[in-house]
């Protein structure tokens, strides 16, 4: 690409689509153990969005790290999306972010320093909005640019939102439309519509701070954020418990503009296939939707929305409050069905 700041053309994968597939990660981590540290509440052995460590003063430390190659060409926007995405894991735990460290890979010979500067400015913009202090970071020279953040948050002990604590009688709320992976592919194929591109940018750059703040008033029983494994991949992780599974109404899921077209045109990211292979066995009644929509439901999301389970009686109020705050939130399903499985209905 001629444009010196064009970031996407320099990378094979984009955003959370660069994530290792869920199947591969499970194989690598299977049986890996560490001492049972006092204070350790969750570690890598579960599917939590952030690790939890009890401080003993009534608070738990929530820690996460996320970094990825560019999903947009504009370096400021990329920085903002990278920070919004990293912060999202903290919000998904019901915690509030306090500090962050930057992780940067940069092709210093190929890209102007102004790009790096703009990436960092974009990241700082999102961190400042979140009330989160950037306390340092680390940089490496690399052929592909990458950016992300390690974020630390705090949450009252025992109050963190876990992702596999689903029980009967809950409704599922999704706070952002899905399809960022497909829009990115359409962008790479140079056939994206302006409406799709702008909606995806807006959605990815938006913090999950407001969504988490509102959901906090509606007795969240379980929560995760929708990122690299796609909506169904993360829903499947949520359903991994002994009590009950989830039922997803596929027709209710809000989609970014034109993504059905992109799926039909064969602009499906490779990550979608990895997600389908890794988590497909947890999905029941896949025939409830066509092949295109099924791919969209497994589309790797970058800086996706929160997927939260709240008591059914409170769900409509929660969705209304989220929508009143300008979020494209929707009710996408409920708890129920075979444990460990996500059952699809039209």
């Amino acid at each position: 690409m001629e444009d010196a700041t064009g970031l996407i053309a320099r990378t094979r994968f984009s955003g959370c689509g660069a994530k290792l597939g869920p199947g591969i990660l499970e194989k690598a981590l299977c049986g890996l153990n560490q001492p049972a540290w006092p204070g350790l509440v969750t570690d890598f052995s579960g599917n939590e969005d952030a690790g939890l460590f009890r401080l003993g003063n009534g608070q738990d430390l929530a820690q996460t790290v996320d970094f990825f190659p560019p999903i947009v060409d504009d370096p400021f926007l990329f920085g903002r999306i990278a920070a919004a995405n990293a912060l999202s894991d903290i919000y998904a735990m019901g915690a509030r972010p306090i500090t962050a460290l930057a992780l940067v890979c940069f092709p210093v010979r190929d890209l102007p320093l102004a790009s790096l500067r703009a990436m960092m400015e974009g990241g700082l913009d999102a961190l400042s909005e979140a009330g989160c202090a950037l306390v340092g970071g680390h940089s490496i020279e690399d052929s592909e640019p990458k950016l992300g953040y390690m974020v630390t948050g705090l949450v009252e002990s025992g109050q963190a939102w876990r992702n596999n604590t689903v029980r009967e009688g809950l409704s599922l709320i999704l706070t952002k439309p899905i399809g960022t992976g497909l829009v990115n592919m359409a962008m790479r194929a140079d056939c994206v519509s302006a409406a799709a591109r702008e909606a995806a940018w807006r959605s990815m750059a938006q913090l999950n701070q407001v969504a988490a703040g509102i959901l906090g008033g509606f007795s969240v029983a379980a929560c995760t954020d929708v990122t690299g494994f796609g909506l169904l991949g993360h829903a499947a992780e949520m359903a991994q418990n002994e009590v009950c599974g989830l039922t997803l109404s596929v027709g209710r899921v809000a989609l970014l503009p034109d993504v059905m077209d992109y799926a039909a045109m064969g602009l499906v990211p490779e990550g979608t296939r990895r997600n389908r292979e890794g988590r497909g066995q947890a999905i029941l009644n896949a025939g409830a939707c066509g092949a295109e929509l099924f791919d969209i439901l497994f589309d790797p999301q970058t800086s996706g929305g929160l997927l939260a389970a709240v008591p059914q009686a409170l769900a409509d109020g929660a969705v209304q409050a989220l929508q009143a705050a300008g979020l494209q939130a929707c009710l996408v399903g409920e708890s129920g069905g075979p444990p460990g499985k996500v059952s699809l209905i039209p």
Partner: peptide, 16 residues
């Protein structure tokens, strides 16, 4: 040389 690209091309063929 991969199934994802194969599936995408078959999709495109039917679409176009």
């Amino acid at each position: 040389d991969n199934q994802a690209a194969r599936d995408n091309i078959l999709r495109f063929a039917s679409y176009a």
